[in-house]
Simulated scan of single mutants.
Amino acid sequence: MLSPGDRFEGYVVDAVVGRGGTATVYRAHEIRPPERTVALKMLTDRPPRPDDSARLDREFALGRRLAHPHIAAVIAHGPGWLAMEFLAGGPITNLPVRSDRLAAVAQIADALDYLHGQGVVHCDVKPANMLLRASFVDDGAALADFGSARELGEVAPPRTTRVTASLPYSAPELLLGRPVGAATDEYALVCSAVELLTGAPPFTAATTMGLTAAQLASPTPRLSRHIAWLPHAFDSIVAKALAKQPEARYSTCAEPIALITRLLRP
């Protein structure tokens, strides 16, 4: 663990901004010009576990391939650590207005469609990985955390093998360890959009087993029956985006978000 004021690999630590199961994220700044503020992600275990190191290496390698205004930039990398763009606005849930949340999700959808054009699937799209820059009006939102990303068509490890905060957004093919594609991220994006609009993702359950079963087999809930301000057409858009078979979903991430935005426009 590092403390504020500690120096590490050309950075000075300012504060801890997040802790996960395998890593701690610090706000830090470069010692030398351009003296950028960065998010410094460090693996907790010393020495790092091989799987965690491989995940971080993959996150850096994929990040260096990408250049999009709504994807968080990676800056530097070393054994057990990664420096990336610091997104000072925090998570997308900091936006209090529904229309702004939808605008931010639309930016993430554009980033995902770009990502898929580069042959990459994020595989961990969720509100916690949608972050805001210091001025949302000027600079918007950005997609972060590519540690779970895979190549299009690659098989990701079945998500049911461990408890994960990503389960409410996990498409059936990801849960079953089948090849992932653009539709995998679309599923997660629309689950996230539903949560950002209504306060909860489409599928919920008290246990991991119950939530997994719901994602795999339960029909998409008709939310307009319980939320008065949602039009019935919202249910149809969400149901198509969350089809159990990837080929039945929309062809891009931008399409369902654009439809939802038009539908809910005042």
Rank of each mutant, 00 (worst) to 15 (best):
P221W: 00
V74I: 03
H232A: 03
A206P: 09
P221R: 00
L43R: 12
T204D: 02
A128Q: 15
Q215S: 02
L132M: 08
H70R: 03
A76E: 15
H70V: 00
F60I: 09
A88C: 04
A141P: 15
P96V: 03
A28V: 04
P246A: 06
M42C: 10
R65S: 13
F234M: 03
G147I: 03
L230N: 09
E59S: 12
L131T: 08
G80K: 06
S135M: 03
E247W: 12
I71Y: 06
T37E: 10
G21P: 10
L62I: 14
T184K: 00
S99V: 08
T208Q: 11
A88K: 04
A206S: 14
L230R: 05
T204R: 04
L196M: 14
R64S: 12
P172D: 01
S53I: 07
M209K: 10
W81H: 02
V16K: 11
G119A: 05
A142N: 02
L2A: 14
D124T: 11
R64E: 12
L56H: 07
L112I: 06
A144R: 02
Q245Y: 12
C191N: 03
D185C: 11
G140C: 02
G181F: 12
L95R: 05
V137L: 09
C191H: 03
I75K: 07
Q245P: 01
L174E: 13
R178M: 14
H232M: 01
D145N: 13
D113G: 07
R133A: 01
L263I: 00
W229R: 09
R19Y: 11
M84V: 07
L56G: 07
P221H: 00
E173C: 00
R32P: 02
L230P: 09
P221V: 02
M1R: 15
A188W: 06
D139V: 07
P201E: 01
D52N: 13
K240W: 06
R65W: 08
P202C: 01
R222S: 14
G89T: 12
L176G: 15
G21W: 10
Q245N: 07
V155T: 12
R265I: 01
E154H: 09
R64G: 09
A206G: 15
V238D: 05
Y187R: 02
A149S: 14
S192F: 11
T164Y: 11
A104K: 04
Y11L: 04
A134E: 15
P201V: 02
G210N: 03
A104R: 03
L196K: 13
T252Q: 10
R98V: 10
R222P: 10
E247L: 13
A73P: 00
F8N: 08
T37V: 08
V125G: 01
I92L: 10
A241M: 11
A76L: 13
H122N: 05
L56M: 10
L196E: 15
V120A: 09
L56P: 05
S148E: 14
A76H: 13
P157H: 13
D113L: 03
T160F: 12
Q245L: 13
